[in-house]
Design a protein around this nucleic acid. Structure first.
Lengths: 338, 338
DNA sequence: TCCGATTATGAAAACGATTTCAGTTTCTTG
DNA sequence: CAAGAAACTGAAATCGTTTTCATAATCGGA
C-alpha cells in the first residue's frame, strides 16, 4: 500500500507538490505534474480517504435512516436519494432501524463520531428531545417525516391531503361505513393521514368509528388478517382505506379467496402507487407520492446545510399527492367515464 | 467539537490514559477512570472515528455492490446482510451500480482509498481482469455471483439446479414448447439457469429454440412485452420459464387481460418466491432461494478474510434451491394432489 | 530490607493526507 | 536593468486518535 510519501520519493518531489497535483491546485509546472502522475500510476496509488477526511473535516458521506429496505416505498426512496447523492459526489450509508429506537440512536452516533457529514431521517423512532442533542455534531434533515418540536428542515408530502382525497373518493362512491387501516402509529405519516381521513368523514357528517380502525398493518399478511377482522364485525365496512399498496393487495387477495367481490362488496384503496397496483386484478386505486422530487429536494437541502453550517432553522417543503383511480374502488365499466 | 485532548485536559490526565479508558485497556486506576468518564460526559465527547480508523488501519465498514435496490431480490439480500453485519459490529455501504460497469469501478475505489475493509460483489459488471487488481487493496467476496477466473471466495445458489428443476416441472406437466425468459445476460446467474434449462430440455430430447428465448426482461413491464412477443409467434409456447417473479407477474397480468388462461393456455413459472407470488391470481409457481443463509455465509466469510488477511483463495459455498409449486403451472384442482 | 514483578501514568511517534508559510525562481513593466 | 509580481516548490504543522517506550510507584516474597 503506497502513500503520498512514496509517490513523492519516486517522483523526486515533495509531498506538497504531489498533493497539489492530486487536488488540481495551481502553480505546478507541467513537467513535475507529469512526473507525479507517472509515479502514481507506477505505484497504483490512491489517496487514503481517511487521512483526507481527517484533515479536511468532511467525509462526503450522508447517513440515511429508514425502517426497512424491503418496504418498497423505502427502497424507492433510497434509490432516488442515492442517485441524487452520487450526482453530487456524495456516498450514502443506509441505516435500517427496523423500528427500534435503540438502533436509531446507535446510527445517530455516526454523526457524533464524524463518520458522516449529515443525517437524513426518513423514519423517527425516538422523541425529538432525544435526537436534538445530535444537532451539535452536524445537520439533520427530515424526509417524509415531520415533528412539531424539531427546528430543522423537513421535506415531506402532504399526507393530510392524501388521506383526505382518498377518503373523499370513497365517500363519493357512496360508501358510508369506511374502515381505516394503517401502519406504525409512531410515525407522523400515519397520524397525518388519519387527520385527512377524519376531515373527509366529518364533511359528510360521519363520525370516526374506532371499531373500524386498524393501526398495525404493514405487510400483505396484515392485510389478510384485517380483512377477516373487518368481516367478523356485525356491520362490516363496505370500503377500506389502507396505508400501503401491499396491505391493500393482501386484503384484495384474501377477499377474492373468500368470494368477497372487490370493489362491489368491498372497495379497497392503497397508498404509494407501487408496481403491484397494476398487477393485481382488480387493479388498485391508490395515492401517488412524488418520491423522486422529495428525495432530490431532501438531498439538495442537506448539501446546502453541510456547506453553510447553519441548520437549526425550521423549513418545511411540501409536495402534493395525487389520487390514481383504478378498479378496486370503481366497478370496471365506470372507470372510462372518470 | 471536543477531542481526546480536551477530555484529558479537563480530567487533568494524559491523552494516553483517556484512550485507555475508551478502549478498556488494563492498568488504569479506578479513580482516574471515573475522572475520565466524568469529563467525557461533561463534554459530550465521542471519539472521532476517522482518526481512529486512520491509526488502526480499519474502518469496520464493508461495501456491498448490487445493481438496484428496488429489485425485491436485492433488497431482501441487503436486509439480510445488513442484519448479519450489524450483529458483528460492521457498517454496510450499499452501492447501486445500476448495471453500469463504470459505476462499479467507481465503487471499487472505496477499497483502494481505504474507505472500506472489504467488498461484497452481489453483481458483476466488469470483466474479472478489471476487478482483480483491486485485490491488492483488500478482500473481495462474491455473493450470488460466480466467475471462473476469480480466485476469491464465492457464496452462491445452485442456479443450474434451479433452472433445471423449474424446467423439468414444466416438462412433467406435459409442456414441450417452453419459452426461456431471463434478465441481464451479463450475470452468471442467468447463464447458469440457462444451462439448467437446456439440460432439462435435452433430457426430454427437445432442442433449445432460439426464437423462444428472451434475454432482456427485468421488470413487470418486460413481462407484458414478452407475452406479446411470444403470442405473435407462429407456434407460440405453452409454458414459459422466467427469471423473476415480477416478470412472471407482469406476464400473467397481461395474459389475463387478453383472455389467455393461466395455466391452461400458458403456464408461467417465476423465480425468487417474493410476496407477489401469493398475491396474484393464479398464485405463482416459483423457485425459492435461501437468501438469508447465503447472506449470513457471505458476511461470515468476509469477516474471516478481513481478519486473516489472506483472501486470494478460491472457495465455493453453494446452497440448494427449492421448487414451490403453485397455481400458475398446475390447474387448480390438481394442486392438492402434489 | 531489598529486588524483581506488577500496576499505573505520560511523552512522543506513528497513521496519511492538506495547508500554511517561507523561500526561490521566473516574468513584467516602467 | 531594477524591482515588484507571479509562478513554483518544499519544510513543517495540523487533523484526532492509538501505540510504543520510558519511567515511577506499589507490591510480594526471600
Amino acid at each position: 500500500m503506497s502513500t503520498i510519501e512514496d509517490v513523492a520519493r519516486l517522483a523526486g518531489l515533495s509531498r506538497t507538490t504531489v498533493s497539489r497535483v492530486i487536488n488540481n491546485h495551481p502553480y505546478v509546472s507541467e513537467d513535475k505534474r507529469k512526473l507525479v502522475i507517472e509515479a502514481m500510476n507506477k505505484l497504483g496509488y490512491a489517496p487514503n480517504s481517511l487521512a483526507r477526511s481527517l484533515r479536511s473535516q468532511k467525509t462526503d458521506i450522508i447517513a440515511l435512516l429508514i425502517p426497512r429496505i424491503t418496504n418498497p416505498f423505502f427502497s424507492q426512496l433510497v434509490e432516488s436519494i442515492e442517485i441524487a447523492a452520487s450526482k453530487h459526489g456524495y456516498q450514502l450509508i443506509i441505516c435500517q432501524t427496523r423500528y427500534s429506537s435503540e438502533k436509531e440512536l446507535n446510527y445517530m452516533n455516526l454523526l457524533k463520531t464524524k463518520q458522516v457529514d449529515g443525517v437524513i431521517l426518513a423514519s423517527i423512532q425516538n422523541d425529538w428531545e432525544v435526537l436534538a442533542p445530535f444537532l451539535d455534531y452536524g445537520p439533520i434533515v427530515l424526509c417524509n417525516e415531520f415533528n412539531e418540536r424539531a427546528n430543522v428542515p423537513s421535506v415531506m408530502l402532504n399526507q393530510v391531503y392524501g388521506g383526505y382525497i382518498a377518503t373523499k373518493h370513497l365517500l363519493e362512491q357512496g360508501h358510508r361505513r369506511i374502515a381505516y387501516c394503517c401502519g406504525s402509529t409512531r410515525s407522523n405519516v400515519a397520524s397525518h393521514r388519519e387527520i385527512g381521513f377524519r376531515k373527509a368523514l366529518s364533511e359528510y357528517g360521519i363520525e370516526f368509528d374506532e371499531q373500524y380502525a386498524f393501526r398495525d398493518a404493514l405487510h400483505s399478511e396484515d392485510g389478510r388478517r384485517v380483512f377477516h377482522q373487518m368481516m367478523s364485525l356485525s356491520e362490516s365496512p363496505t370500503a377500506v382505506f389502507t396505508g400501503s399498496d401491499e396491505v391493500a393487495a393482501g386484503m384484495i387477495s384474501e377477499a377474492k379467496k373468500h368470494g368477497c367481490k372487490v370493489p362491489e362488496e368491498l372497495a379497497v384503496i392503497g397508498f404509494d402507487n407501487q408496481t403491484i397496483t397494476e398487477l393485481m386484478e382488480p387493479t388498485i386505486t391508490t395515492v401517488h407520492q412524488p418520491v423522486e422530487k422529495m428525495a432530490q429536494k431532501a438531498l439538495e437541502i442537506m448539501i446546502e446545510k453541510i456547506r453553510s453550517r447553519t441548520y437549526r432553522q425550521r423549513e418545511v417543503y411540501e409536495f402534493p399527492l395525487r389520487l390514481i383511480i383504478r378498479e378496486s374502488t370503481v366497478s370496471t365499466k365506470l372507470i372510462g367515464q372518470l
